[in-house]
Nucleic acid binder design. Sequence first.
RNA 1: GGAGAGGUGGCCGAGAGGUCGAAGGCACGCCCCUGCUAAGGGCGCAUACGAGCUUAAACUUGUAUCGAGGGUUCGAAUCCCUCCCUCUCCGCCA
Length: 424
Amino acid sequence: MLDIQTLRNDLAGVAARLATRGYTLDTAKFEQLEAERKTIQTRTQELQAKRNSTSKLIGQAKAKGADTSAIMAEVATLGYELKQLEEQLERVQHELNAFLSVIPNTPHASVPAGKSEADNLEVRKFGSIPKFAFEVKDHVSLGEELGGLDFDTAAKIAGARFSLLKGPLARLHRALAQFMLDTHTEQHGYMETYVPYLVNADSMRGTGQFPKFEDDQFHICADNLYLIPTAEVPVTNIVRDEIVALEDLPLKFVSHTPCFRREAGSYGRDTRGMIRQHQFDKVELVQIVHPEKSYEGLEQLLGHAETILQKLGLPYRIVKLCTGDMGFSAALTYDIEVWLPAQNTYREISSCSNFEAFQARRMQARFRNAQGKPELLHTLNGSGLAVGRTLVAILENNQQADGSVTIPEVLRHYMGGMEILRAS
RNA sequence: GGAGAGGUGGCCGAGAGGUCGAAGGCACGCCCCUGCUAAGGGCGCAUACGAGCUUAAACUUGUAUCGAGGGUUCGAAUCCCUCCCUCUCCGCCA
């Protein structure tokens, strides 16, 4: 949510910044709603003040045992108009709120202007792209030949966009999550958290999934709960409606969770393999920081995610998303894209964003500043990393001519010393 | 699932239709005393929004907010209804 004060003071400026990300702010509507709100609110408050002061007089008169019938008749006539006004005010405020809650965040000044993925800015590359003396297979072929990846059975059990992992491949998947968690807790200073995978609507609103992206979520109707699309939702909402002590900042959390996405609107995209699933595991990094430290924190968080790829020996690049490609709540986003030989391209494996106060304002997540006043925090998060896609990257990048796959050094002790995956 | 108790400021906790945005305490901030690591005294200390003043802040003032929503009333933290959440006991259960 944007700051309504900023909208009032610099509506044209905000509209211009939003236009760079392809969002047309209906400034006329905002102005009209604001004008209405102001008129109604002023009048309502006048009447309320009158009612309150008169009622106070009644109280005083009654305490003295005086007759109050005249004064009571006078105040009684206020009732009807006041009720009308209060209803109107509520309606306008709801409308304003609905209007505000679907406006995306304003991009940071350094975000390159652009319309789509094609306009993203490559920041740096790491690692060299592997050369193969044989025809590369994709992870689906590799996984099926290894006997550990079974999409047909997954489809029988649940449907399309689910996967079934078996044997060493399932173990490698677990090993990856363990390795990521251990690295972030032991080397990067994050606190491990275990969180609910079902959340309420308030939490979804807090991080910006609601109201705009309700269709993308799995909804448990009987209990009115939602499956989390990312650990960002439960973890960031830890600080919803909280006032964090200044000395406790920054808060750094890491959490390994499954993520559930309906992928409505992506029919036909990445239908083969594990790239786009209704359910996937992710290790998520979340930082709750002082507003002056958020960009510094984002660079660090990005580095923490990169470390995982470096340790795994996977080639990747960092891309700064352009205005048109950023998510709804983000002010600045770096994507980490891992090299996938079978697709001969880089594919997103992590997305690291600074939301500034956008989520904090929705959540009323604050800290007490040096003056003792509550002030909105800044929130950051990033994948560190998407486990399924990391598995895909390892299979494809580490494949051998005979269809076996070498296990990265750092994962071997999580694999009971296994060095290579082979068809049994 | 059954029975009961409860949700009040950053925290604890009183209030049980009128002068209550809410006693008292803790924490915090400023000042004083003392002088040494602990204590005494004074003052201040919720948030959001509106209006005034202003470059702005500060300030003044109004309104709303005592889990949420509705109702009764001239007036609701307080009475009534619905919902949500927490706790205790019983049942079931990984």
